[in-house]
Design a protein around this nucleic acid. Structure first.
Length: 293
DNA sequence: TCTCAGGCACTAT
DNA sequence: ATAGTGCCTGAG
């Protein structure tokens, strides 16, 4: 077993392995704000995938995993989106000095391929909230209603299944600190659990149609729909516009002139093209971590 | 006390 | 279509 998984006890219910991951930075990808519900400790990231607990750690161009038996490496690679041609996308979005600088500042930051429901649920909880608050909210909700999984000597809570969030009372979600988002998550979970909204059917739909389906869910507007399409369904043209992106785009490309959200979308589509979503992530990262001077 | 934080839904125009 | 407003909550 790898020294990178030191201190971890493997038993008959778990296994380890490694996955080649060139041009991949686990830390950047996990901590850039695209995903919630994974815990970091000493460079190791622990969460659940397909209902099983897993710990990931990076060693150069390899990702080592320690997972509950039954979670195969192909599923992990899929989550890490290692099939995506990262270099060609980076070339495509490095279209000006700012974008080159932004890409350089976070090389290896990839868009992960999250599971649809945990992604949607987390983003419903994200509205009008800061990253740190979203993290703790997702943690509270998972602790209260998510399934406990066991990996080595630790316990890991999955994001609650739609059935769990559907059958509980709105107040149970509110008790986790979700506030006005509670009824949204409760009702969205009911729609998903009842099959009234079929997340699996989104894959393959044209972007605009998939977005319309998501926006029928309570608590899901333009921004959150775009996040889910980009972070769970790999619609790389999706360009979620939050206050950071709005300010950054106005500042960098419009001499700080105020734009409508619609105008930002039009600009993004025409300027960045089919990989606008990747461009968004780098603009977001740079604006937050490096500042726009 | 007040503002702000990675929005959404509702209402009025 | 678009603009204005309330909303849970915790941090600064």
């Amino acid at each position: 077993m790898s020294q990178f998984l030191d201190g971890i006890e493997v038993n008959e219910d778990s296994e380890t392995g490694k996955i080649e991951a060139p041009d991949f930075d686990l830390h950047l990808s996990m901590d850039c704000g695209q995903i919630f519900g994974w815990e970091e400790a000493e460079g190791k990231y622990t969460g659940t995938l397909a209902g099983r607990a897993v710990t990931l750690v990076q060693d150069g161009a390899n990702i080592h995993y320690f997972a509950e038996t039954g979670l195969n490496p192909a599923r992990i690679s899929h989550f890490l989106a290692l099939d995506v041609n990262y270099r060609s996308i980076m070339r495509a979005i490095s279209i000006d000095d700012f974008m080159k600088k932004a890409v350089d500042s976070a090389w290896g930051l990839r868009l992960l391929r999250q599971e649809p429901w945990p992604c949607l649920g987390s983003y419903i909880l994200s509205s009008n909230n800061s990253v740190e608050r979203i993290r703790s909210l997702v943690r509270e909700v998972s602790l209260a209603m998510g399934e406990a999984r066991y990996l080595g000597d630790r316990r890991v809570y999955a994001f609650p299944r739609p059935e769990a969030l559907a059958s509980c009372h709105e107040k149970d979600i509110r008790a986790c600190g979700a506030g006005f988002r509670s009824p949204y998550l409760n009702r969205a979970a009911r729609m998903v659990a009842a099959g009234e909204a079929d997340l699996d059917s989104l894959a393959g739909l044209p972007y605009a149609e998939a977005k319309d389906v998501l926006k029928r869910l309570p608590g899901v507007g333009d921004k959150i729909a775009d996040c889910v399409l980009l972070f769970a369904f790999s619609y790389h043209e999706a360009f979620p516009v939050d206050v950071w992106i709005k300010r950054a785009v106005e500042r960098i490309y419009f001499d700080s002139r105020e734009l409508k959200i619609r105008e930002i979308h039009e600009f993004a589509r025409s300027y960045f093209g089919e990989y606008a979503g990747y461009a968004q992530e780098y603009i977001y990262y740079y604006a937050r971590e490096c500042g726009l001077e």
